[in-house]
């Protein structure tokens, strides 16, 4: 099993469909974090697993073409800054760091509970990208030693 080849065509065909479903599920869990069980961390792990699915099925070189790894690294570093900026906006509008300064909205609706969904989205991006990048770098080490993946 070489780098560029990935797994069998059966796995590749299934992956082609399943990746989008997994990504959709991850986005659903992140966006509904303030309504149903789950949230940023769980949804982020789901999205990281979707990227991992592509990497295992298609190999590293295809994934490097499919995803812009440099951009992912930048977004990963920027997401924590975004978290802090949102916290500082709480000082500006809500008198306290990380204050919930947006309107509470109607309960059980998607756009409710102020900044909680925004924090969920930021944490989701952060967790998804950092977990995926760790696997990416580990796989690099593996292939440098002569292993596959």
């Amino acid at each position: 099993m070489k780098d560029s080849h990935g797994m069998t065509p059966i796995v590749k065909t299934v992956t082609r469909v399943s990746v989008w479903l997994i990504l959709l599920y991850g986005c659903y869990i992140i966006l509904h974090g303030h309504l149903t069980p789950g949230g940023g961390f769980a949804g982020g792990v789901v999205i990281a697993l979707a990227f991992l699915n592509v990497m295992l099925a298609y190999g590293k070189s295809f994934t490097a073409e499919w995803l812009n790894i440099r951009l992912l690294k930048d977004i990963e570093a920027a997401s924590i800054t975004l978290f802090l900026v949102l916290g500082l906006l709480g000082i500006a509008f809500g008198n306290a760091f990380l204050a919930n300064f947006l309107g509470k909205g109607e309960m059980f609706s998607l756009f409710s509970s102020g900044t909680i969904p925004l924090f969920n989205i930021i944490i989701g991006i952060k967790v998804a990208l950092s977990l995926f990048l760790v696997v990416w770098v580990l796989a690099d080490i593996d292939s440098a030693k002569g292993g596959d993946l």
Partner: peptide, 28 residues
């Protein structure tokens, strides 16, 4: 107070958002 139907989200990201910031920093 928070308007979140999921009580865990309201604690983790509103009452104890400071803790969550620490966790994100640790992860980073």
């Amino acid at each position: 107070e928070t308007g979140a139907a999921n009580i865990v989200a309201s604690i983790v990201l509103d009452y104890r958002a400071y803790d969550t910031m620490g966790e994100v920093t640790v992860l980073f």
